[in-house]
């Protein structure tokens, strides 16, 4: 219980002294130390935010940041090294600028992963809530279906589906979107089931609150924090899945600058031009690390605010 006395020095000057902060009101560090922001910030969150903002800027303003046309090659300037002939990160086997291609690939991969992720979120949350709400045939069917889907190796299924429905952005997004929602369903189902056991949900039911109002008023807000976290982690997973499919030649159409395609092209020139491998591989690693950091950051934020645990 909180009825211990918290020893606190009196007055703002004493507080500042006790915290070892400067008394200069213009000192931004002192102000930061006293501010609420400090409670919610740590180095992880700062790094994640910087990387994330950089990625968003690249994705949105990519067209202005490309130094070359990503599709246009210059056969006179094949395999340029980084910095050579105004190629920032070098050029590939057709003399195309790797930097510009990486930026273009970012846009393609991000758009694909984001759309698929939103579809995943929607399907997984809906099914998870439906299954958690009430015991009965709906729960049985949804859970069995989820188990079945999860028991297949995801990439193999995705390969089969893509081979059948064909290449391109839309088929790829829908394949990922319709197959990869299992993690959302599982987490939502588990958390929602526990929320449905709480007394405040019982009290709402006794007061006659409708099932829909309970679902959107109590249960969905209760799983929201977790949804943000999975959304970030899953985003990283989808980025990898998209790159893997493209690498295998069944994701993005050939020739489109995506990270997976770039990796696939680099295979033949591995020894001659390692930059062709390093640029897209580095981009994937950075993007995945960023999304994981963002996920961790959201998780620790929601813990600090005491909402995801104080329930």
């Amino acid at each position: 219980m909180a009825d211990h006395q918290i020893s606190k020095p009196e007055g703002p000057v004493a507080i500042a002294k006790a915290e070892g902060a400067s008394l200069n009101p213009l000192d931004p560090i002192a102000r930061f130390n006293r501010s609420k922001l400090k409670q919610y910030t740590n180095i992880e969150i700062v790094v994640a935010s910087i990387l994330f903002i950089a990625i968003v800027i690249l994705a949105v303003f990519g067209a202005f940041l490309q130094t070359h046309d990503p599709m246009q090659g210059d056969l006179m300037a094949r395999f340029a090294k980084a910095g050579e002939k105004d190629y920032l990160l070098g050029s590939d086997h057709l003399g195309r600028d790797l930097w510009s291609r990486a930026v273009a690939g970012l846009q393609w991969s991000m758009a694909c992963a984001l759309t698929a992720n939103i579809i995943n979120l929607f399907i997984g949350t809906t099914l998870g809530l439906m299954a958690a709400e009430k015991e009965g045939w709906a729960r049985t069917i949804i859970r069995q279906f989820t188990d079945t889907l999860q028991s297949f190796p995801f990439l193999v299924v995705a390969i089969v589906v893509v081979v059948i429905v064909g290449h391109g952005f839309v088929p790829l997004v829908f394949t990922l979107g319709l197959l990869a929602w299992v993690v959302f369903m599982r987490v939502v189902y588990a958390e929602a089931t526990s929320i449905y056991q709480r007394d405040y949900v019982k009290a709402a039911r006794i007061a006659g609150v409708s099932r829909i109002a309970i679902m959107f008023g109590h249960v969905l807000p209760g799983v929201r924090a977790s949804l943000f976290v999975i959304f970030a982690f899953h985003f990283a997973g989808l980025l990898i899945a998209e790159s893997a499919l493209s690498f295998l030649g069944i994701g993005a159409p050939l020739g489109v600058p995506t990270w997976g395609n770039m990796l696939a092209e680099s295979r033949q020139y591995l020894l001659k031009a390692p930059g062709m491998l390093m640029v897209p591989a580095g981009a994937i690693v950075l993007a995945v690390i960023t999304m994981n950091l963002v996920g961790d950051g959201i998780a620790s934020l929601s813990r600090k605010r005491g909402r995801s645990i104080d329930v």
Partner: peptide, 23 residues
């Protein structure tokens, strides 16, 4: 258990008047 009988995300006024919003 007063820990579990109030929605931790709702302000007090909303908790207390939830039954009044039915219908």
């Amino acid at each position: 258990d007063p820990q579990s009988s109030l929605d931790p995300r709702w302000p007090t006024w909303r908790i207390m008047t939830e039954p009044l919003t039915v219908g």
